[in-house]
């Protein structure tokens, strides 16, 4: 079956001000997302995940590589064709405030996509707006309100209503709950789950929060400095990570558990993510990896398949798997969900 979204060897480079340097924000990424699926992408700031999010929905043109929406290469579409096509591929951003125009009422904001498409009568569009607000759990009376009159959670619901207006098949969610308080975050995550069950939506869920991605995702890709380092089912990535970066990421997360239950050994990485202007040679993670060897600087590890839809890029994956994988796996410290 044709995947709903697929990305092939995608590269997005930006020129950087001084000395004609190039920021390689996304540097050769390949994956696909099926209908109705939730695909999680985790990575730290500077990993290129937000650039990838924007490129996926056609907001940033790729430097190289291809993006397919329902099997069709979006670069080969005409302007009109793409305009029609992109309705099925929406995006919701991190900051619910910045994503709303302060001078437009919530109703106008949610109606705007419908106005642009201009399919129905004005009265039908207004009725549709009220249904959308109700659908995302907002009181339809809020249609007349302005963003500053709404709480953070309500604003994010309005953004979601707008993304739903044109009945998309896929929504890219770029850190959509990062700016929200814990109790509101749970509400919004529940809303995403309900909409998926009702409408059969697919999500690409981009986040730095391992708790969030573990809760929502079917499959997870781990991104580091413009590249994927590991990809697999949520269970594989969170409970049986192969890549040293994934292991370090999992073990760095502070868990809300009593002392006696926090048994996993923490791997504290040295340093910070290097600049995407001049990424390290060979394996990009080698400058922070605790098991790096000469080979890592000389040769870039290949993106290899390990079993059904399990991918990884590390020279020493077999060593990981047979040697330290079990006792290093930090997520084992978390009790099984009930």
């Amino acid at each position: 079956m044709t995947p709903l979204l697929s990305v092939e060897d995608l590269r997005v480079y930006f020129p950087s001000g001084q000395r004609g340097e190039t920021v390689k924000a996304v540097d050769g990424v390949t994956f696909s997302v099926g209908a109705g699926e939730t695909f999680g992408i985790i990575g730290e700031s500077g990993s290129g995940k937000s650039t990838l999010a924007r490129a996926m929905v056609g907001l940033i043109p790729p430097t190289d590589g291809r993006i397919f929406h329902a099997g069709q290469d979006i670069a080969t579409m005409s302007g009109a064709e793409f305009a029609r096509h992109r309705r099925s591929f929406q995006i919701v951003f991190q900051d619910p405030n910045a994503a709303l125009d302060p001078r437009m009422s919530i109703g106008q904001t949610v109606r705007e996509p419908l106005d642009i498409v201009n399919a129905d009568s004005r009265a039908d569009r207004d009725r549709r707006v009220l249904r959308l607000l109700d659908h995302v759990g907002l009181n339809p009376e809020l249609a007349l309100r302005y963003p500053h009159e709404l709480s953070g959670g309500q604003k994010q619901r309005a953004n979601i209503a707008r993304a739903l207006a044109l009945e998309p098949k896929l929504i890219v969610c770029d850190e959509v709950v990062a700016a929200l308080d814990v109790s509101i975050q749970a509400d919004i995550l529940n809303l995403f789950a309900r909409l998926q069950a009702e409408l059969g939506l697919a999500y690409v869920f981009i986040t730095h929060d391992l708790g969030v991605v573990g809760h929502v995702a079917d499959r997870i890709a781990v991104m580091y400095l413009g590249k994927l380092v590991e990809m697999g089912s949520a269970d594989q990535i969170l409970h049986h990570p192969l890549h040293p970066y994934t292991k370090a990421l999992l073990s760095s997360e502070p868990l809300p558990l009593p002392k006696a239950m926090r048994t996993g050994t923490r791997i504290v990485l040295e340093g910070e993510i290097p600049s995407p202007v001049s990424p390290p040679s060979g394996c990009r993670f080698r400058t922070r990896c605790w098991m790096t060897q000469d080979k890592c600087a000389e040769k870039e590890p290949a993106w290899l398949k390990y079993g059904a839809d399990r991918w990884n890029a590390c020279h020493f994956t077999d060593f990981n798997r047979d040697g330290e994988a079990s006792d290093r796996a930090p997520s084992a410290a978390m009790p099984p969900a009930h």
Partner: peptide, 24 residues
């Protein structure tokens, strides 16, 4: 208790999170 229970970490994957109703 509500704050702790609403953490996605503590619920089974894909289950409905026990959010605190209403708002601050």
């Amino acid at each position: 208790s509500g704050l702790l229970r609403s953490l996605p970490r503590l619920s089974a994957a894909k289950s409905v999170l026990p959010a605190i109703p209403g708002r601050v």
